[in-house]
Design a protein around this nucleic acid. Structure first.
Lengths: 344, 344
DNA sequence: TTGAAAGCGCTAACAT
DNA sequence: ATGTTAGCGCTTTCAA
């Protein structure tokens, strides 16, 4: 299974020999600029023929070295396990390719050391740009890129050392919460008992969403003990929600689930305690087709992946420097399942 | 935002100049082989000092060109939108990194042209190996790799031109179906009315799973009109299941959902017709935490991503050629929600 | 209309 | 113990 060295990859010199011409002519022909150099069309034909007889394929590494362009575009992302990040990865690939770049997406598992390591690796591979997605406090990574002279933009979680693209977390959360409050009221519940679950304290997206949550609940005294930024682990969210469930009547009449990951924890409890679906409603920032079908009234905010990625490329392609730029993209309310029926 | 050319990336020559030595000494020092060459530790220290004063980072493209090693490892995958493929991508990254390779994962959206294009791109980038995951009839892609002298293995869907790694689809499906039949019987349903939904006719995994399904239902006459290999589109599966739901009593008492993607279609119908959860049970090949929490008895078969990827690397690292090799990995029964309670 | 030659950044014989 | 040199495969200027 080892790479067979015998069938060595062919080079422009092999083609030149076979076509009875020189390497430079081959290069000219293969790059389409042979018209400009008025190369004989017979020669050109012979070259092309030889090239595909040999199954020639340009060595992009050599080409990149010569041109000091790699045609690689990098993106770092926490993981692929939810629709938001999966969508970002796929859309990044599509948009990179449409620009003639080869996309290189790498996941970091939200680990600081891994984040740094993958960015270093991307830079060593001479990527021409990098998108840093979902990294809390990305400044160090931005600086690494700046040092290498590589354009860099932050996505999802912003920083001050590079331009950033984010969803309208606050506005989206406000809309979501307003809907949730109405729903709870319609069901005769006490909106001051609505909970906020998931995300990390001090993290931009979480704090913005919490701010939106507070704006929409400003009309009454919120029970602060129900605001729990308990991270992104489904298990932690599950333990928390399970403990509420054990309280019986004390279970929140509505939950704002900050991140679909925490929502997994809710789903796990729901599986064991189906009656929760009669007693509570959910508002979740992020979308998932299965979560949308859980037997509980649920509203979901879907981030606009296409425009988020589009904005990143736009910032990168801008002529002027714009460290401070921050583009905000509106998310859309995707699913409101069973809301407003007042019965669950 | 353009790349600033002023802060040109430093090279070993810059370091050599600053450290008052030569480029080769720098190279030797930076590659750790300076011990072997008995380079003065003062010189080595000066070199290292200069290197990080300049923020030096090896140009892997130049290095690769010289060594004819790229230290890139490629994998093509249909998409990232379910846990199976997301898991494959993440595990591939981890295992590639642990071998000192830079992982490059690209998605193809199950499109033939894109599949070919991304493989060509990976080869042009001189990747040292490629994993072709989830591609039906991967022979052409395997041949492209063989032509380039690059080791290649198929994952999930096998081919004859390269070794393959697959899950035990037949065995897994048999186990899953056996459980489903028991469940349907326990609920007083007619097991001959169990349906098989999703996947493509003629595709390896689908046919294997169908074979396992048939083995487990061999004891009675199956209603063949309920075997529907209707592809991977959630919308198609949704339309199909919705039409069954409209038949009322004709709804299958159990469904073998071949692929989590088709299961999304079921979830969508379930959201509108919650009563289906009382009347049917699901067996799904693949796992998703939200799907596992749907209000319907559901059994899920989770593929062993770590071992699948591990087997791929093992095949690639083998010394002997092994085109015909096919490694089978056992999946595990992950969730049996509400099964055996006979009430749903 | 085409070929020779230089050089992108790096490594590894081979000299010294 | 360290420097010189010759490429890896490609592009592009310049000369012919």
């Amino acid at each position: 299974m080892r790479k067979r060295e015998d069938r060595a990859r062919s080079t422009i010199y092999d083609i030149a020999k076979r076509a009875g011409t020189s390497a430079s002519t081959v290069s000219l022909v293969l790059n389409g600029s042979w018209q400009r150099y008025r190369i004989n069309s017979d020669t050109a034909a012979r070259v092309r023929e030889a090239a595909d007889a040999l199954g020639y394929r340009t060595n992009q590494r050599a080409r990149g070295l010569r041109l000091s362009r790699s045609s690689l575009a990098g993106m770092a992302i926490p993981h692929y396990r939810n629709r938001f990040f999966a969508g970002l990865a796929e859309e990044f690939e599509a948009q990179a390719r449409s620009r003639g770049l080869c996309p290189v997406v790498v996941s970091t598992q939200r680990d600081r050391a891994t984040e740094r390591f993958v960015i270093e690796t991307l830079l060593a591979q001479q990527v021409e740009m990098v998108i840093v997605a979902g990294v809390d406090r990305p400044d160090i990574l931005n600086e690494l890129c700046a040092l290498a002279g590589i354009a860099c933009v932050n996505l999802d979680l912003p920083g001050s050392k590079a331009p950033s693209v984010v969803s309208d977390n606050r506005g989206g959360a406000r809309r979501l919460t307003t809907i949730l409050v109405d729903e709870v009221r319609a069901r005769g519940g006490d909106p001051s008992q609505i909970a906020f679950v998931g995300g990390n304290s001090g993290e931009y997206a979480t704090e913005e969403r919490l701010a939106g949550f507070r704006e929409a609940t400003a009309g009454f005294a919120l029970d602060e003990s129900r605001v729990l930024r308990c991270g992104y682990s489904p298990a932690t969210a599950e333990a928390l929600i399970e403990s509420w469930a054990r309280q019986g009547d004390g279970f929140p009449p509505g939950i704002f689930v900050n991140s679909i990951t925490a929502c997994e924890g809710f789903a796990a409890v729901l599986r064991r305690r189906l009656e929760l679906g009669q007693r509570t409603s959910l508002a979740c920032f992020d979308w998932d087709p299965f979560a949308a079908s859980l037997p509980v009234p649920i509203a979901m905010m879907r981030q606009d992946v296409d425009r988020l990625i589009g904005a990143c490329f736009e910032l990168i392609e801008r002529e002027e420097p714009c460290e401070a730029a921050m583009i905000t993209v509106e998310p859309t309310l995707e699913i409101v399942s069973a809301f407003g029926t007042a019965a669950g």
